[in-house]
Design a protein around this nucleic acid. Structure first.
Length: 497
RNA sequence: GCCCCCAUCGUCCAGCGGCCGAGGACGCCGCCCUUUCAAGGCGGAAACACGGGUUCGAAUCCCGUUGGGGGUGCCA
């Protein structure tokens, strides 16, 4: 990879070259991830190149740490780049050269107007934007002077868009926009055009929010380069439940967050891939390779898509269940180790987890849910859900009898799930209950919750000693605390508050 | 305000003038399976924003309206 920040010249072939060009100002937005994915699919399918370019021309907001976050998020998603990362901050010479050519060719001029001055002059104008005050003042460079592009007064600039068709902008509605800030830094419009040209980008695939600035890029390209314009493809934005563009401030959008909650990258890729596109055969479960093979830019739809976490979770559950058991355990291990897990790290026993893993695997939608499923094996002290206790034990007058019977029968039986089940079935019979109803007090007493893994397998792994201990403690709780309102607080067994 | 984009179940997609009495998936509801919960199976409710055209025929094409969104920075 080049270290001097200079892009190699395009080979001159006809293979497509695309780029993903995030600015390092925060976590990777799921919308950005989708953009990256579509670029990547297109490049891989066409045998072209995927270029990674860091757009850090805004020195105030850009931070190197965000850049490494972007790289690791892309790696996590399996989005590999062929070139880069290039950094615009390392390519400033290119931009000043371009600005100089603009100035020399009469396509740009220095402007000394401040924002408040412009606003004061233009507040009653029918056409918004800069009024061209400095166009013909013949200003040279100097402090506080920006460079503006001289937009033609007449004519129409057409953006040919692969997903939207031709979009026309009257030049009269485009203001003379700034291309170089008064501190000498290029503005992104300029930097993007210069880089796309220098890097031989053939397809600019990005979010729709960039569509309104695209005619400016087209205008710049026209005076800066003889090369043909790249094709544009503006993807629909991703929105929240209120149908507003996802924002880092108000919405949960960081792919890092989803990673940390235990979403699988292949599920995320599958879900993201279907947000705005779908294969002709209607399949919804697609591997990365199938996505690459089937993806078509001109099939991308035009309307905004809601990022639906429920649907993502469904995909994730499907992918989790499809994992080989060993692979599931391996991936879940990260979530079972401190500090994320709700138990002291030394208490975790991988072999115990492994015995229950098949049952866990089909019950979780994210890997982050795994610890909660097996918490009863490792927590110290044992945590018992007071609400579950109140319902299944405190609020059930027959619960004490069931618990007593369970203690009696489980003391001496052989300790395996089948036997435990048979013993509980016998208790159910003699108490005139269905097994489903009879097992509830035992479940809550031994596992601490009303719902969870199958009871008998769980007891088997828990072990006789701890199981009987808990049943006895729960029995004490019923004697001491069974209040009429069901608001039972079994202080003797509840681990916490 | 101005410029631009968009418009099929709550949500994501299918639909490219007749095959639409609008299909799939998520979610939701019910039933089955079942030691709880899941998973799985079966079934159900649920949409072409509105108005004009064009056409023998429109969810599909055109125009308008309405609604939503994006942009309007010396942010990207």
């Amino acid at each position: 990879m080049p270290v001097d920040g200079q892009a190699p010249q395009p080979a001159g072939g006809r293979l497509p070259r695309v780029r993903f060009a995030p600015s390092p100002t925060g976590y990777v937005h799921v919308g950005g991830a989708r953009t990256a994915l579509y670029n990547w699919c297109f490049a891989r399918q066409q045998g072209g190149a995927f270029v990674l370019r860091i757009e850090d021309t805004d020195r105030q907001r850009s931070e190197a740490s965000w850049e490494s976050g972007i790289l690791s998020a892309l790696e996590w998603l399996g989005i590999t780049w062929d070139e880069g990362p290039y950094r615009q901050s390392e390519r400033s010479g290119l931009y000043s050269d371009a600005a100089a050519r603009l100035l020399a060719g009469g396509h740009a001029y220095y402007c000394s107007c401040r924002r408040d001055e412009i606003d004061a002059r233009t507040k009653d104008n029918p056409v918004p934007g800069y009024d061209g005050f400095c166009r013909d003042r013949g200003l040279g460079p100097g402090p506080g002077r920006a460079v503006r592009f001289r937009v033609p007064d007449e004519g129409v600039t057409v953006v040919r868009d692969l997903v939207r068709g031709d979009v026309e902008f009257a030049n009269s509605t485009i203001e003379d926009f700034v291309v170089v800030k008064s501190n000498g830094d290029p503005l992104f419009v300029l930097a993007v055009v210069v880089d796309d040209e220098a890097m031989g980008i053939t397809h600019v695939i990005r979010a729709e929010e960039h569509l309104p600035t695209t005619p400016k890029a087209v205008l710049l390209w026209g005076v800066l380069s003889d090369a043909p314009l790249p094709a544009f493809a503006h993807l629909p934005v991703l929105v929240n439940e209120k149908r507003q563009k996802l924002s880092k401030r108000r919405d949960k959008v960081a792919v890092e967050d989803y990673r940390d909650e235990g979403y699988l990258p292949e599920a995320m890729v599958n879900y993201l891939g279907l947000l705005g596109w779908s294969p002709a055969d209607g399949r919804e479960l697609l591997t990365r390779d199938e996505l690459v093979a089937g993806f078509r830019l001109d099939e991308v739809n035009r309307s905004p898509a809601f990022f639906d976490e429920k649907r993502l979770a469904h995909f994730n559950g499907v992918y989790i269940r499809a994992l080989e058991l060993d692979e599931f355990v391996r991936r879940a291990l990260t979530f079972c180790s401190s500090p994320r897990a709700p138990w002291p790290p030394e208490r975790f026993d991988e072999r115990a987890f492994r015995r229950l893993a098949p049952l866990v695997q089909e019950r979780v939608a994210t890997l982050g849910e795994v610890p909660g499923m097996i918490e009863f094996l490792f927590d110290e002290p044992f945590r018992l859900d007071p609400d579950a206790f109140a319902k299944a034990i405190g609020g059930d007058s027959g619960a004490a009898g069931i618990l007593r019977a369970a203690i009696a029968r489980l003391e001496g039986c052989s300790w395996d799930a089948d036997t435990l089940r048979a013993e509980m079935a016998a208790i159910a019979d003699s108490s005139g209950r269905k097994l489903a109803k009879a097992q509830a007090p035992v479940r809550v007493a031994a596992l601490g919750r009303g719902v969870g893994l199958p009871l008998f397998e769980s007891l088997e792994v828990l072990g006789r000693e701890r199981a009987l201990e808990r049943l006895a403690a729960a029995l004490d709780g019923t004697a001491l605390f069974s209040g009429a309102d069901g608001a039972v607080r079994p202080a003797s067994v509840a681990g916490g508050a």
